[in-house]
Write a protein that binds this DNA or RNA. Structure first.
Length: 580
RNA sequence: CGGGCCGUAGCGCAGCCUGGUAGCGCGCCUGAAUGGGGUUCAGGAGGUCGCGGGUUCGAAUCCCGCCGGCCCGACCA
């Protein structure tokens, strides 16, 4: 026993675990509040957090699980730079595409650099040294800090500007190889999340600015999330609403009353609802909603059924556009000569007409006449409209029928914790990463890219594992597995028994913390609950008289007495069982 | 980027309208009592009132500018 009190014992009294009695004023999301209150992290700037010892312990445990599962599928770990030369991103074309999302800076000579948002470019540039198909396949990965200049950081670790991500990249000779690597990752991700106590939905997703053909997101249902996912409880279909579809009930259109659209006055009618209520109007599902959008600078009309909502992401994906925004009132008037409220596509060819699939074959529809205060009825979509492209543009709504089995779809808020992409050859071609095949032909390497946000996993676990008293970590990622609470450290026997049990657990390989603080019992109990340590052993004089200590399980509050001598052994066993 | 709000002790807040000694609770330090769910008593330390300028005899308080942060929306591999 030296001045550090038993040398290697981890004592709460000597640890930096700044718990807070009150919720921090600037935190809203549960995970944000609890991670700060329980002393796991502190904010340094908007969207930038310091991990304190407890938070770092959790983070390391999650990273360890990720490493084990990545290595299980044969991945090799790298450590790549966070600081990248602009030239690299110019070669892939993403220097422009990323826009203000990317942190950019200049060095003393004026050379342009950026902080990496992701590492496709860097890995592809390294893959240039691969020369032969015989070296493939390979999977490369790293855990690295990524930077994104989020316009609006929020919700603690859920939306930040600096964060750690595990990103891996698969390198294959052909599509079949990519499919295998993709499946390996899918299975690895399932195991990783399951070991972390999460069971995210695996959903079809839009690939957005990443490019590539197919991608799957792993989404944890949570009110703190900001992505919406449509899922079917009956058959398992699940997709991000940016991509999700649904089956629509057939609508029997009445026979048209005329062979051409008929113009009629609708004074004061400016919305779908108003037209539906208008005496001479039509129900929303019998109207054509006409929106005007600007897609990469080009104006286009976007048509949907009156009661359907547009998904801007589907529009961007379907039209192959990067920048998508609604047109201004002036632009609308310039394009169609009327203002929003009386717009229609009948007779319009010049701004391109993009129409949602749900409008195909519809007849006797009502839409704007491109003249304020007038609408057209009896519109036959196929006859009267010049549709340049039929696209799936509609945002699905909860309760609509599953496209696979017809059961009602649910739409839930979720947190994206992982995303896997089939990239193809975009980056290998841009950076010249080719190999020679059996015939000596040069082929671009087929790549996949796979990410897991470590901080988001941490926050998601808290979002799902907490109660009124604090966090309820699963053993696999808890900062400590056991806390030994010495009720009155001034009593020699109590203190010694606490240390003895601590030492025994330590010797058994358990992550254990000794709460030896000279505090009231209540303080120590509250803190242990807040921090969320899965098992608490209470050593107090009352128990010692009976030669027992108390074991309390955080998760469900289950309490039992253990004989002194067997306590460490029993607890160690319980921990081992839950560790996985 | 648009809208709303907030910066006063480590944390949570009052004071600002109506200018005049910078306060409260918790936490922290010392001592004592207590010791199974945030205990009690006594004493104490701790503040460039976000920053800069202006008005004024005098500014936490009024005015102007800036910075930072939160929430809603837009945006977002």
């Amino acid at each position: 026993m030296g001045r550090y009190g038993g040398g290697r014992r981890l004592r709460w009294s000597k640890s930096f675990i700044p718990t807070l009695r009150d919720d921090p004023a600037d935190a809203e999301a549960i995970s944000h509040r609890l991670l700060v209150r329980a002393g796991l992290m502190r904010q340094l700037a908007a969207g930038v957090y310091s991990l304190l010892p407890l938070g770092w312990r959790v983070c390391r445990k999650i990273e360890r699980i990720v490493r084990e599962e990545m290595e299980r599928i044969g991945a090799q770990e790298f450590r790549l730079p966070a600081l990248h030369p602009s030239e690299l991103w110019q070669r892939s074309g993403r220097w422009q595409v990323m826009g203000e999302e990317m942190f950019r800076l200049a060095d003393r000579r004026g050379a342009e650099l950026c902080l990496g948002m992701t590492h496709e470019e860097v890995f592809a540039s390294l893959a240039v040294e691969l020369r032969s198909y015989r070296a493939l396949p390979q999977i490369w990965y790293q855990m690295q800090t990524k930077f994104r200049d989020e316009p609006r950081p929020k919700s603690g670790l859920l939306r930040v500007r600096e964060f750690v991500m595990k990103d891996s990249y698969s390198l294959d000779v052909d599509r079949e190889g990519l499919d295998r690597a993709f499946q390996l990752h899918f299975d690895a991700y399932r195991r990783i999340f399951e070991r972390c106590g999460l069971s995210p939905l695996a959903v079809e997703a839009s690939s957005g600015a990443m490019g590539g053909s197919e991608s799957i997101e792993f989404m944890v249902p949570s009110d703190a999330g900001e992505d919406w996912v449509a899922s079917c409880g009956a058959c398992g279909y699940a997709a991000n609403v940016e991509k999700a579809t649904s089956r629509l009930a057939d609508i029997a259109d009445p026979e048209p009353r005329s062979t051409a659209p008929e113009r009629f006055a609708t004074p004061g009618v400016r919305t779908i609802e108003e037209l539906a209520r208008f005496s001479d109007g039509a129900p929303a599902e019998r109207q054509i909603k006409t929106l005007v959008y600007v897609l990469d600078g080009e104006t286009a009309l976007v048509l949907l059924r009156g009661d359907h909502a547009l998904s801007e992401q589907k529009l961007a994906d379907g039209a192959g556009a990067v920048a998508v925004r609604p047109a201004t009132d002036e632009e609308i008037r310039a394009a169609l000569g009327a203002s929003a409220g009386s717009l229609g596509a009948v007779g319009v060819h010049r701004p391109r007409v993009l129409a949602d699939l749900a409008l195909q074959g519809r007849r006797a529809m009502t839409t704007g006449a491109n003249e304020d205060g007038f609408h057209l009825r009896g519109v036959d979509v196929m006859r009267d409209l010049d549709v340049a492209a039929w696209l799936d543009l509609r945002a699905v709504a909860a309760g609509e029928a599953c496209p696979l089995c017809g059961a009602a779809l649910a739409v839930d808020k979720t947190i994206e914790v992982g995303h896997i992409f089939k990239l193809g050859t975009r980056y290998s071609e841009a950076l010249g990463a080719n190999v020679l095949d059996e015939q000596g032909r040069s082929l671009p390497i087929v790549m996949g890219s796979y990410g897991i946000g470590i901080g988001r996993v941490t926050a998601s676990i808290v979002e799902r594992c907490h109660d009124a008293a604090g966090i309820t970590w699963p053993v696999s990622v808890a900062p400590f597995e056991v806390v030994v609470t010495v009720l009155n450290p001034k009593e020699v026997e109590t203190a010694e028994v606490g240390e003895r049990i601590y030492d025994a657990l330590r010797a058994a390989g358990i992550d254990v913390l000794l709460d030896d603080r000279d505090e009231r019992p209540g303080v120590k109990f509250k803190d242990a609950d807040l921090v969320g340590i899965p098992y608490r052993i209470v050593v107090g004089a009352r128990g010692l008289e009976k030669k027992v200590v108390e074991l309390k399980r955080r998760r469900d509050g289950q309490t039992r007495e253990l004989p002194l001598e067997r306590a460490a052994e029993v607890v160690a066993e319980a921990v081992f069982e839950e560790r996985h």
